[in-house]
Computed example of a mutant assay.
Amino acid sequence: MHVLLVYAHPEPQSLNGALKDFTVKRLEAAGHTVQVSDLYAMQWKATLDADDTLERKDGEPFHPERDSKHAFENGLQTPDIAREQDKLRWADAVILQFPMWWFSMPAILKGWVERVYAYGFGYGVGEHSDTRWGNRYGEGTLAGKRAMLIVTAGGWESHYSPRGINGPIDDLLFPIQHGILYYPGFDVLPPYVVYRTGRTDETRFSTICDALGHRLDDLWKTLPIPFHPQNAGAYDIPECTLRADITPGEVGFAAHVAPPALRVAAKG
């Protein structure tokens, strides 16, 4: 299988750097082909702006959505954007690896998403009508591929528990897993999270790698997070709100995750 690892940490000798190297070696040892987009090493341009379109009419104001659509449809994207889109097309699975900074991903990785997910590639795909609202949330250009997060956090695991001070880790990662990954069609696997990174000695690092290794070995066996697909009947269209009988009593992020048994039954 082909695996793309999109990696966002500025220090090669960090814990993240060691985990990135371990991940590549483990996947390659299992026979997979791996490409790494090391965003800091690539000096990735994080800002989405008018320079992302090779040809623009002089004097016209920059419009992110319109300009992105025009560039994508007419082969006018900058080469760095087009290369990353080609990597995504090539990949059977994508891993986003990053440290949690200020409750989200580093800006450089967010910038990768904003620039690479062009209109017509990452969004703006499919029919919008009274029965369908685009090919998204379970459908889209990246459907059929798998995705997983590898995340490091300085805080204790209890800090990210359901009643922890930082908020539940599933809630913090929801915009990434449901929005950035599930939106364009990925099957999203549960994340691999390392807590208390400042307390990692050789013994603990070995334990972390053992657990991560098992997750990587099972990359094509692990059941995805059972998000409700948008166009399969769980949502009223075009309102895009859950029907009253779907995960009744749940609100917020949790409402958009189906009990695993229901997801299995729906797949037959």
Rank of each mutant, 00 (worst) to 15 (best):
G167Q: 04
P61V: 02
Y192M: 02
S68V: 10
P64G: 03
E28L: 07
S37W: 01
R243L: 07
S104E: 00
I108L: 11
L223F: 05
H32I: 01
F174W: 06
L149G: 01
K69G: 00
P184I: 03
V251C: 02
V264M: 13
E239H: 04
M105L: 15
I180E: 13
S104Y: 01
D80M: 10
R199S: 09
T207Y: 00
P191I: 07
A91T: 05
A50N: 05
H2A: 12
A232W: 02
A93T: 07
I108S: 11
R215K: 14
E84D: 11
R66L: 14
Y160T: 11
I169E: 10
L5C: 11
H214M: 12
S206N: 11
S104F: 00
G154S: 08
R115T: 02
L48R: 08
G59I: 02
G122I: 06
K57H: 12
T53S: 08
Y137T: 05
A258V: 00
L15T: 04
L262G: 14
V188R: 08
N135H: 06
Q85I: 12
W156D: 14
D67Y: 03
V94L: 15
Q97Y: 02
T141R: 14
D80I: 10
P238H: 06
R146C: 00
K87C: 14
I246D: 01
V36N: 08
A46T: 07
A107M: 11
K57T: 13
E55Y: 10
R66C: 00
A258H: 06
G185I: 02
R83D: 13
P175N: 02
E127L: 09
L181W: 06
A232Q: 10
L142F: 06
H70I: 12
M42C: 02
G140C: 09
P248F: 11
L96R: 04
M1Y: 04
S14C: 04
T200D: 04
H159A: 15
A232P: 01
G126R: 12
T207Q: 14
Y183L: 10
P184E: 04
G167F: 07
H159R: 13
H228Q: 02
L223Y: 07
G75E: 12
K267Q: 14
R136F: 09
Y183F: 13
N74L: 11
W220A: 15
Y160M: 12
R263L: 13
W112E: 01
P224L: 05
D51F: 09
D52M: 05
I246A: 02
S68C: 12
L96S: 03
E139P: 04
D187W: 09
S14T: 04
L15I: 08
A255Q: 05
V251K: 12
A71L: 09
T131Y: 05
P162S: 03
L223V: 02
A71S: 09
H159M: 15
V188M: 11
G185E: 07
T53L: 04
A29M: 10
V3Q: 11
I108Y: 09
W101T: 09
M42N: 03
R132D: 04
L149I: 09
A118Y: 00
Q77D: 14
G138M: 01
T152E: 03
G179D: 05
H228R: 09
I150N: 09
P99E: 03
